[in-house]
Nucleic acid binder design. Structure first.
Lengths: 101, 101
DNA sequence: TCCACGCTTGGCCTTATAGCCAAGCATAAA
DNA sequence: TTTATGCTTGGCTATAAGGCCAAGCGTGGA
């Protein structure tokens, strides 16, 4: 899976990593939910309806990408959106969808 | 790889598909280039420095997602950005990058 | 102190992605 | 009509991603 040459500029690699983190329906669903306030993992789990371990891994992907941050309070871990601007992009996405009709 | 329940709303699936199409350094590089005008496959090939077949497949991913459109003129196939608003998002991405420091 | 709860991590399996090469196909030039 | 050019497609291999289960770990309540 290695290219034969010509590294793509690091900028694009970095951007791609962020987009990749967002590029999953469950993760988008959680980001959307987090746009309305912080949530604990168990709430997100209920939202996406997958195994807790799966949800936790999705969250760690978002966290590693710098999109969310977490914070442990008592027994629960709360996640919140670190970068609200991702939401703006969704309007653009709708445009793409509409354009394809 | 199938969930055990609860389908995520179709909206999120659709959005995720678009993000996934963008979530690759070579494809971002090409989108960036196309933001400055249409290009033939051979120009994009030179830009990303991969095998022609690889570039062609990347373009078909972008096309299937509705992000670019193509048009054959003579022996060449020209691609252009169908959805310029994707570029706006890049500013947001920079923000994420900066925020992670 | 010990158990229960909430979450994360490791392991495993299955499927999807990305790369190359080779073959195919369509158009233009010879 | 043949050949060359420009691109796409099929096939293959290697790696990454996404799901579950089971085990681990830390905190709070009994």
């Amino acid at each position: 899976m290695q290219p034969l040459s010509q590294p793509t500029p690091p900028d694009f690699e970095a951007r791609a990593r962020i987009l990749k983190a967002l590029a999953h329906a469950s993760r988008l669903l959680m980001v959307d939910e987090l746009s309305r306030g912080e949530r604990c993992v168990c709430e997100l789990r209920e939202l996406v309806g997958h195994d807790l371990s799966t949800v936790s891994k999705h969250l760690s992907v978002l966290k590693a990408a710098g999109i969310v941050e977490d914070d442990k309070r008592g027994k629960q871990v709360y996640y919140r959106l670190k970068v609200p601007c991702v939401l703006n992009f969704f309007h653009c996405l709708e445009g793409v969808l509409a354009g394809r009709k």
